[in-house]
Design a binder for these strands. Structure first.
Lengths: 190, 190
DNA sequence: TTCTTTAATGAATAATTATTCATTTAAGTT
DNA sequence: AACTTAAATGAATAATTATTCATTAAAGAA
């Protein structure tokens, strides 16, 4: 009995991400994905029941990777500013290094592909970040403002910064990151 | 001789924007647009040579409307902070009131539809904003940092704020806007 | 080695979507 | 009113894309 090739799923994901980055969601087809992944079109249907499921699976995978990266090296026992900067930097770096995923996820939000379940799970994603900002308020590091507004502010600056860095085709230097962090921190700080 | 109906172009644009907001770029078809606009599919091809041109026209229209809104009521003779707040508020309000356009434009950036010309023109869009931020630096209102980083920071916070307000389904209150402006200003100020 | 099972293939089919075109309709001109 | 011209229509066609399926290939079990 022949066994399924575990590497194939990842090949398909990589192929799909590459295509989305180039042409957007509206530009990817099952045959293009198969070709890019180096497999036959029919093989896609062994690993995914259809295009919708392929996209939802990939989205979930991206969301998971994204989420997992955020709190890497975060130590709640350390001072708040240090921890906040760690998370802030994790988010920025993840988005720079995984720009394809970011583009894909952005495009999916307004697509006919994502199902209810995928959508719902995604909303829960921000909860740990929410708690982090709350901690900042509790410790009087941050202004006593609506947590969602603060969180949105922080996230927005990162998202746009990454997009801009990407399209201007110059890598963000370490000093740029410091600058961006300072802007964010100064905005939020008490 | 029958004359072209000038209202039709706008009807088509409205229809397309509505559909994009619901289903994304990947979800709109020429027949769906026609149906939504209340005209026959063939009629679309009288006003636009094909789907690509339709989308590029709509994109240009949206970009123009967006750009025109930014400096409404801006008076360079008034103090910087006042002028900056005017522009900041204009951008925020435009994006709230024209959320469909915003979604459409976002989706277009990574689509196979936008042509070179449309892309290029779009990049020039931010120039007046760039100059505004430069003025802030010259008057020592803003930190002496890279103008692009400052601009990106400002824009990012607005973009994300609007998205969030929309998806959380609660209208931004006047106080929320004040809060958001303060966060932005405090981040950028000297 | 032979058998069995499932992965893999890619051409064929089904479904969807863009585009065309013969025909009709409406508006302006003579 | 009769004529002319271009808009409008929507069914038909072309093009593209998703999905299936008969067939082959590969890997483990007997």
């Amino acid at each position: 009995m022949k066994l399924r090739d575990d590497k194939k799923t990842q090949q398909v994901f990589d192929a799909a991400l590459g295509l989305v980055k180039e042409k957007g969601l509206a530009g990817i087809t099952m045959s293009a994905i198969a070709k890019e992944a180096g497999i036959a079109t029919g093989t896609l249907y062994i690993y995914f029941t259809n295009k919708e499921e392929l996209i939802n699976s990939l989205f979930s995978e991206c969301r998971k990777a994204s989420l997992e990266s955020y709190f890497r090296n975060y130590d709640a026992a350390r001072p708040f500013k240090e921890g906040f900067k760690t998370v802030w930097t994790n988010i920025l770096k993840f988005r720079i290094e995984n720009f394809e995923e970011v583009v894909f996820m952005d495009q999916c939000y307004h697509s006919p592909f994502l199902n209810e379940c995928t959508m719902k799970l995604t909303k829960q994603m921000k909860y740990p970040l929410f708690k982090l900002v709350e901690r900042g308020k509790e410790e009087n590091a941050f202004k006593q403002l609506d947590t969602f507004l603060l969180l949105t502010f922080m996230i927005g600056a990162i998202h746009e910064g990454v997009k801009n860095a990407h399209y201007s085709r110059k890598a963000l230097k370490k000093t740029d990151m410091e600058t961006m962090f300072t802007l964010c921190w100064d905005g939020m700080k008490q």
